[in-house]
């Protein structure tokens, strides 16, 4: 498979008068594991949705290889979404359908109207789906309704759905924010395995600094829609973190992050 750089230039999106993403310029080389951190509302989710084209940018450009992603329409746009799979905080599975069908949703971009409406998938596709589920230890649950699974299992079903898309990039929007630590670790390990074994670029929004430090080759921090920091975990110092998250009104910051630096909070 050809390897392309995902490059964002001056990418922006405004909602009314608020600039959710403000002139973001980034180059993401193939195979990188990138973590995006920042406060709630800093524009992390919007950034990922812009890349997948779930929302359209108000300015700037996304390029992948020779293609201008921001100009894609119709079938080409659907193919782009297939190529950069997305995983959501709330899993976004169809709870009333079985696990296997949920995974096969990842194949829809390549289907015609009739086969899609009739939910007809080829044996090869079914084999692909069950192998993806098996990789995530979910083959025994393939015939269960997705809604009956635990949160951690549902998120792994969502990863299996992303895998059968044969993506080049995998975007994950706070994939572990609704999970307990055990399940969170399993999901992050699954993403790491996919990144290393399949060479898929992973771009993941995270709330927990420790997770970002443990898994990501590169960390991007956003603040008020802009890229505020871009570097390795080692370069992400406590001073930088305090700037990213702000310490106003916070009686205690996450101890593992703030053990050295934050000045006592003065309240009015």
């Amino acid at each position: 498979m050809e390897q392309h750089i995902l490059s964002l230039s001056g990418l922006g999106r405004s909602f009314g008068s608020t600039r959710a993403v403000d002139r973001v310029t980034l180059d993401i080389p193939p195979g990188q594991f990138v973590g995006v951190i920042g406060r709630s509302g800093a524009g992390k989710s919007t950034l990922l949705r812009l890349i997948n084209r779930l929302i359209d940018p108000t300015e700037g450009q996304i390029r992948f290889g020779g293609a201008d992603v921001t100009a894609l329409k119709g079938r080409a746009l659907r193919n782009w979404r297939r190529d950069c799979a997305m995983i959501f905080q709330q899993f976004n599975l169809v709870e009333r359908l079985d696990v296997l069908t949920n995974v096969l949703v990842g194949r829809l971009a390549d289907h015609g109207f009739a086969s899609s409406m009739l939910m007809r998938f080829s044996d090869a596709e079914r084999a692909l789906a069950i192998r993806a589920l098996d990789r995530l230890d979910l083959a025994p649950q393939a015939m269960q309704r997705a809604g009956t699974l635990s949160g951690g299992q549902q998120q792994r079903v969502a990863i299996a759905r992303a895998l059968v898309q044969n993506p080049r990039i995998m975007l994950a929007d706070e994939p572990i924010a609704s999970l307990d630590p055990g399940n969170a670790t399993r999901v992050m390990e699954a993403l790491r395995t996919i990144n290393r074994e399949d060479g898929i670029t992973v771009l993941v929004n995270l709330h927990t600094i420790d997770t970002a430090r443990a898994y990501c080759d590169r960390i991007i921090a956003m603040r008020a829609g802009r890229v505020y920091f871009d570097g390795t975990a080692r370069q992400l110092t406590d001073d930088v973190l305090r700037d990213i998250y702000g310490s106003e009104g916070l009686p205690a910051f996450d101890p593992s992050v703030t053990s050295t630096a934050i000045r006592p909070v003065v309240t009015a």
């Binding site: 997948n52 779930l54 659907r78 193919n79 782009w80 979404r81 297939r82 799979a85 997305m86 959501f88 709330q90 899993f91 976004n92 599975l93 169809v94 709870e95 009333r96 359908l97 069908t101 949703v105 990842g106 829809l108 971009a109 289907h111 109207f113 899609s116 409406m117 939910m119 969502a158 759905r161 992303a162 898309q165």
Partner: peptide
């Protein structure tokens, strides 16, 4: 609407979103 968003993000058309995301919910 989240299941529909999931189908859309995987490259599904409007009809796919309805068939897989909406129909099972309303049946």
């Amino acid at each position: 609407m989240r299941p529909l968003e999931g189908v859309k993000a995987a490259g599904g058309s409007w009809f796919d979103q309805i068939r897989y995301g909406a129909v099972p919910q309303i049946l």
